[in-house]
Design a protein around this nucleic acid. Sequence first.
DNA 1: CAGACAAGGCTTTTT
DNA 2: GCCTTGTCTG
Length: 743
Amino acid sequence: MPDNLLDNLNPEQREAVQYLDKPLLVLAGAGSGKTRVLIYKIAHLLQKGLVKPQEILAVTFTNKAANEMRQRAELLVESQITGMWIGTFHSICARILRKEANHIGHSRNFTIYDVDDQIKQIQRIMEFLNIDQKIVKPRQVQYVISKNKNKLKNAPDFEKAATNFIDQKIANVFWEYEAALSRNNAFDFDDLLIKPLDLFTQNENILTKYQDSLKYILVDEYQDTNRAQYHFIKMLSAKHRRICVVGDEDQSIYRWRGADIENILSFEQDFPDCKIIRLEQNYRSTQTILNAANSLVAKNQQRLGKYLWSEKEVGEQIRIIPAPSEVGEARHILKIISEMQSLGTYTLNDIAVLYRTNAQSRAIEDQLRRSKTPYKLVGGTKFYERKEIKDILAYLKLLVNPNDSVSLRRVINFPTRGIGEISIQHIENFGREKEITLYDAVMDAETIPQLSTAAKGSLKHFVDQIENFRVKISQITAYELAQEVIETFNLRSQYQHSDMFEDKARFENVNELLNSIAIFTETNADDNASLEVYLQEVSLLTDIDYWDPENNAVTLMTLHSAKGLEFPIIIITGMEDGLFPISRALENDQDLEEERRLFYVGMTRAKDHLFLLWAQRRFGFQNSEYGMAYKNVPSRFLKEIPEGYIVRPYSVQTGQEWDRNDGSNHRQTDIDFYYEDKFITLDEPLLDYSIYSVGQWVVHDDFGKGQILGIGKSGNGTKLTILFARNQLKKIIAEYANIQIVD
DNA sequence: CAGACAAGGCTTTTT
DNA sequence: GCCTTGTCTG
């Protein structure tokens, strides 16, 4: 164990590590070594023998960060750290609920519902309550319920506040929803945070137990805590008050999820005797990048304020690059990648492409694939949300928790066993009458008069199979069980002999899932290797937890996912008003400030080079029209960066600017422009599956000359959106109309 | 009751 | 534009 543990820290970091007995707020700017402080603090506490590992509660933002933190602390103290409470709020709360479930009417084998499960449950309730799902949308109901639970408002609270018809309906669903989850022995994501609060409030002895045993509390990314999380740590630290929160109000980007920036802004009021330490030296970015980011975020009103400085070199200017379209933007990314690689100091791992919305990845992926550039995509369709994976997990969840009616409904006729929607209705009605769970109703299928003999036989067989497996849970490993379940119910073989590309991918995904269960079984000690723990942990994993920084490839992800990471080269795409900042945030200052913080987070991920790209036209939804290309205006944030830090290319737009409201026949010329003294031509067709391309001029028999604004499919035909003279916007099927391309 | 096809809705960001 | 959902047909 090294005695000079603290020598690697700067004075402020060292002070933060050694300040132990009172509440501490560390305001840590981007790249100022806050993770370092947390790791050294854990190591320091353990090395001095001040606390035992199981007496530390350390909350991180991702599971991945938790693992890394533990491993790096282990390196410092030169021994294994076991038993420490480290993880995300959600995983720590799940751990507590597992231990204490019986005190709040659940058992430890509870199921965790994701948004998809929640919506399924809500739909069933709405069917039961005869609420028209076209008028009140289940997705909306889920959103409202979650939003309220986030604010610690329960069904009675919501009902009291409900004034209009729709809210009253939602209130009814809210009540039923809570009852259903309770019957199902299930928690949703919000419950994981709320239920421990109920537990602590209702059982003072349990609260005391945790207050006494968790002697030191550390919270990372404090600016992104919500009300429930705030109460959670406040309750636990109330007695000993040995709490250290680390955060940066300028990086608060989860307001939409209930995060309350007030939690960090008002920490001083909550803990009047607290100490505040500012970490303002940035070790990550060049002075140019840092100064530009500082200037940007200084436009925000809601902040405590700090000014980051760096001893790193001035570095290259930030490059702003306009592209004609999202395809052009993607091609610029290729150019940047090859230019950066030609410097000889960077690998593909050093490059990340960031964007505001997941949908933007498509065009970029497309170009990367064509140029055979390896890339890794974070986010999008998450692994555990894929149908084939959810099917298998639903079987496993049902085995562990037969009360879970959402999972039961998912698998009761998959693979098909002749139990259709009508039969399920009969079973449900029966269960409701007898006040028994859906699974118990299925077990009693024999006595349900409305069911056909075939259905009864099929259900009997199904129940026998499930019961058989339930006995095995305690006898064989989670991996063996999953394997047998997959074999028995044909959950893999049905994808095996298919020629379809999707099925091949599904087959591989099933193998990958089995692999992950195998790893879990191997790496966890007996009592923690149970199927129930696996299922609960897996529900809380996110895509970033799988991101492999080693595997040599460019990383693609949302700006949100990039939080906490750093790369030598950052390319931020879609710097357009309406996309970033996103249109919905333009309406109020608070949302706009959050967008600005998000941009700040993106900029400060960069160590050496920063590129900001925008597309003059972009396909996709905009102005509530889909599949259309619209002219974009560069992001207002670009103007907020002082000119000295940026370099803009010279665009050779010889013609007038493109304007879809202008019926005149000028040709689009923004395909070509100068960039850093080089003349770049993007002369490949934008969409190579069609002889048509966006921007092309065509002649139509009736409408005359027009310009193609959008290309799409309609059945087997090609649907063209064309702007003709006198502002006539027409959608035309190319194969039926007589369209000539004008050169 | 299951598969095929058409219409409708929808995108911020995620535990 | 895409994906999910609903409806029609065998």
